[in-house]
């Protein structure tokens, strides 16, 4: 298997704090790759670097062998990398449908003139709109969001909003999807559904998944490989079983055993 996403010595600091220090990893195509670590370990920072919101001080990012280190967010999206956010960043005054349609933005072409003059069935803009609505409908079916279809996002419960955000990223038809704590704020049942959704995203849609999560059960169940971070440093990388037993990881999560003299 070849790697689809690769980072080399990613380093970024804010003020005096090194948020990421020489972090390198490689994600195989078709994998579910998780990043774990205590709060402030730099998990979200990695996502922000990949999606172009932050630009690293040094180091490189490759997507399918292509350097994407200094691309802007919308260019990264164009390459085929979609993401969700830790604190839901939905368009709250739009319906679920419109949120997902925004995810189709890159697949559409209608400009100002065509948009403003689209009045009849069969016009280019209408055809494009209908075609993309069908695609969105598939995503809605996939995530079972039918009930929320025409509701404003602001009126939806938290768990559903998380799903809408996931749907928006899927509507982009990406090759890699970055999920930043998708299960935060969900109850046990929703978490179970989400787990299957993530596996389906990989198996049925063939999308590589990068996951930042705090729920260890979920992580250990579905991840192919795991990267553990602490204070911006890579402390371990490997299969879930390896990570579970790794002394550095245990230390980071549980603290060090005090030596009794």
């Amino acid at each position: 298997m070849d790697s689809i996403l690769k980072t080399e010595n990613l380093t970024i600091s804010f003020g005096g704090i090194k948020a990421l220090n020489n972090v390198s990893f490689e994600v195989e195509k078709g994998a579910i790759y998780s990043i774990i670590g205590p709060n402030g370990a730099g998990k979200t920072t990695i996502f922000n670097c990949i999606s172009g919101i932050y630009q690293p001080n040094s180091g490189k990012l490759f997507f399918k062998g292509e350097d994407i280190t200094y691309l802007k967010p919308y260019q990264v999206a164009k390459k085929g990398i979609a993401r969700t956010f830790q604190n839901i960043e939905l368009f709250s005054h739009m319906s679920t449908m419109d949120n997902l349609m925004l995810g189709r933005h890159l697949h559409m072409k209608t400009g100002v003139w065509r948009g403003a003059t689209f009045l009849y069935k069969g016009s280019k803009a209408a055809n494009e709109e209908i075609l993309n609505r069908e695609k969105v409908e598939e995503v809605i079916d996939f995530l079972e969001l039918q009930a929320a279809r025409n509701q404003f996002v602001i009126n939806l419960p938290y768990g559903t909003r998380k799903l809408v955000e996931l749907g928006r990223a899927l509507a982009l038809e990406p090759e890699v999807i970055l999920l930043d704590e998708p299960s935060a704020g969900m109850n046990m049942e929703e978490k179970g559904d989400l787990m299957f959704s993530i596996q389906d995203i990989r198996d049925d849609l063939g999308i590589t998944v990068l996951l930042v999560e705090h729920d260890m059960n979920l992580i250990m169940d579905i991840s192919d490989r795991i990267l553990a971070l602490n204070f911006g440093e890579r402390i371990a990388e490997g299969l879930p079983e390896e990570i579970q037993k790794h002394p550095e990881v245990l230390k980071a999560y549980l603290g060090e055993e005090e030596k009794v003299a």
Partner: peptide
């Protein structure tokens, strides 16, 4: 509504 998300969506 959210310029960050808009940009991340392309």
């Amino acid at each position: 509504d959210s310029d960050i998300a808009a940009e991340a969506m392309g």
